[in-house]
């Protein structure tokens, strides 16, 4: 019993370490003034109002949403086709390659990728550098694991091979099979993957700051500039991004409960 309460205490302390900075930031975003005091003084919505009234931030938000949505769409397509192929072909080298692709964003740091993209898409007379399209390409690669992983876990969970055998023996055409069996059964993984992909693309800074230009700045890029405005404003701008991440995360966790799939299988990592 003593042991158990010790574990619990350690767990709760860790919980505080994780959420204290977030809570502080949220408090700060509603504070009128925060300088030299433990907590801010006064209560205001002013910072949020400011955030949504400045064209630069609103435009960046729209840009972020646009890139994130397209990233999700493209990755959903890429992931479904490749996960299906890797699973069904069941070749050792393919599985190894798949494992490696899942780890790509860590194996090839964003700064290396950004450097490569800036050089590879900058031809004299025609340059993609500074466009949102190039960022889209970068984000598709960067967020790929977040779609691939839950989908593959999903394939394994439903034991796809026999389902396909069953459907074929019942006379299903490939299209019927994909529409009625594959996609509906991959839905939990697909939704979790989409939410995570969306969140990761939305918050991505390291690639965005290298690849985008003044007309294609995303929210995290302009957020960096907000740090120098005022504490309250910076807190509000950051809180917005933090909230989106947390909502996405709990969306994924909620999904796994709804679909009764095992949480650790469809959740994120790496």
């Amino acid at each position: 019993m003593i042991k158990k309460s010790l574990f619990l205490t350690v767990g709760i302390m860790y919980l505080f370490f994780i959420i204290a900075p977030i809570i502080l930031m949220m408090i700060g975003s509603f504070g009128e003034k925060w300088f030299g005091t433990l907590l801010p003084t006064g209560f205001t919505f002013e910072w949020y109002a400011k955030l949504f009234s400045r064209l630069m931030y609103v435009r960046a938000m729209k840009m972020s949403l646009q890139v994130a949505s397209l990233t999700v769409l493209i990755n959903a397509f890429l992931a479904i086709s490749s996960v299906y192929a890797v699973y069904v072909l069941n070749k050792d080298w393919l599985t190894r390659a798949f494992d490696f692709i899942i780890l790509l964003p860590i194996a090839v740091p964003p700064v290396v990728m950004g450097l490569g993209l800036v050089q590879a898409f900058n031809w004299p007379g025609f340059s993609l550098v500074g466009t949102w399209q190039l960022l889209l390409g970068a984000h598709v690669i960067f967020t790929m694991p977040f779609m691939l992983k839950p989908l593959m876990a999903n394939m394994e969970l439903i034991g796809w091979n026999t389902l396909e055998d069953a459907a074929l023996s019942l006379g299903a055409s490939p299209l019927f099979l994909a529409r009625k069996v594959l996609v509906p059964n991959l839905l939990p993984g697909l939704i979790s993957g989409s939410i995570m992909t969306f969140a990761m693309s939305l918050g991505e800074f390291q690639l965005a700051v290298m690849v985008t230009g003044s007309t294609s700045q995303t929210y995290p890029v302009v957020l960096y500039q907000a740090f120098y405005v005022s504490t309250g404003f910076a807190c509000a701008a950051t809180t917005l991004l933090v909230l989106m991440s947390i909502v996405s995360l709990f969306g994924v966790i909620g999904m796994s409960f709804i679909f009764r799939t095992r949480i650790d299988k469809v959740s994120l990592s790496a």
């Binding site: 439903i158 026999t162 055998d165 074929l168 023996s169 006379g171 069996v181 059964n185």
Partner: peptide, 19 residues
């Protein structure tokens, strides 16, 4: 092909479509 053979198959692990 399988789908034109008119064979009904019952599998060990049931293989019912979960959805």
């Amino acid at each position: 092909s399988v789908k034109n053979r008119d064979v009904g198959i019952v599998f060990q692990n049931y293989a019912l479509f979960p959805n």
